Amino acid sequence: MTVPLYQAKAEFFRMLGHPVRIRVLELLQDGPRPVRELLADIAIEPSSLSQQLAVLRRYGIVTSRREGSSVVYELAGGEVAELLRTARRILTDLIAGQNELLAELREAETSSR
């Protein structure tokens, strides 16, 4: 039985819906990183990072390879980096709109006094 596209999309976004996973993906936009660097930048327990990396690997969002005693992770493709850039633009627009609304509310409050 196949899953409807909207359900697959919802599951994909649910998979992305964890702050550590998003932070890992942001860090990997700059290129491959060993786990020790990810741990230093994210500052969480190794077991927690391992769990989140496993989820990203399972969905095929990141790949890993062993280099000596280190495991290095990288984005599986450029589309994820583009998705993160798009999300940043959307959030920037939303926040700008909220700031405009806040300014209007403050102006209305000042003029009603």
Rank of each mutant, 00 (worst) to 15 (best):
M1T: 10
P4A: 06
P4Y: 06
P4N: 11
L5W: 03
Y6M: 09
Q7L: 12
Q7M: 13
K9D: 01
A10Q: 08
A10F: 06
F13E: 05
R14T: 07
M15T: 06
M15R: 13
G17M: 07
P19A: 11
P19D: 02
V20R: 11
R21C: 06
V24W: 03
V24Q: 01
E26K: 15
E26Q: 14
Q29S: 02
P32V: 09
P32S: 07
P32C: 06
R33T: 05
P34D: 10
P34A: 11
V35T: 14
E37C: 11
L38H: 00
D41K: 13
D41Y: 13
I44G: 04
I44K: 08
I44D: 02
E45P: 09
P46H: 07
S47V: 12
S47D: 11
S47Y: 14
S47N: 10
S48A: 15
L49D: 00
L49P: 04
L49W: 03
L49Q: 00
Q51I: 11
Q51S: 14
Q52L: 01
L53C: 03
A54L: 14
A54E: 11
V55Q: 04
V55M: 08
Y59I: 02
Y59C: 05
Y59Q: 08
G60I: 01
G60Q: 02
G60T: 03
G60P: 02
G60Y: 02
V62F: 02
V62T: 00
T63I: 15
T63G: 09
G68I: 09
G68C: 07
S70L: 15
V71E: 03
V71N: 07
V72I: 11
V72E: 02
Y73P: 03
Y73V: 04
Y73R: 08
E74P: 06
L75C: 07
L75V: 00
L75M: 04
G77V: 03
G78Y: 07
E79R: 13
V80W: 03
E82T: 12
L83K: 08
L84A: 00
L84N: 04
R85F: 00
R85H: 03
T86H: 10
T86C: 03
A87P: 01
A87N: 10
I90V: 14
I90K: 10
L91D: 00
I95L: 09
I95V: 05
G97D: 06
G97P: 05
Q98N: 12
Q98C: 06
N99A: 08
E100S: 13
E100I: 13
L101R: 15
L101C: 08
A103D: 02
A103M: 15
A103V: 12
A103K: 15
E104F: 09
E104H: 15
L105W: 10
L105K: 15
L105S: 06
R106T: 07
R106A: 04
R106K: 15
E107N: 12
E107Q: 15
A108S: 13
E109V: 12
E109M: 14
E109N: 14
S111H: 11
S111N: 12
S112W: 15
R113S: 01
R113N: 08
R113L: 06
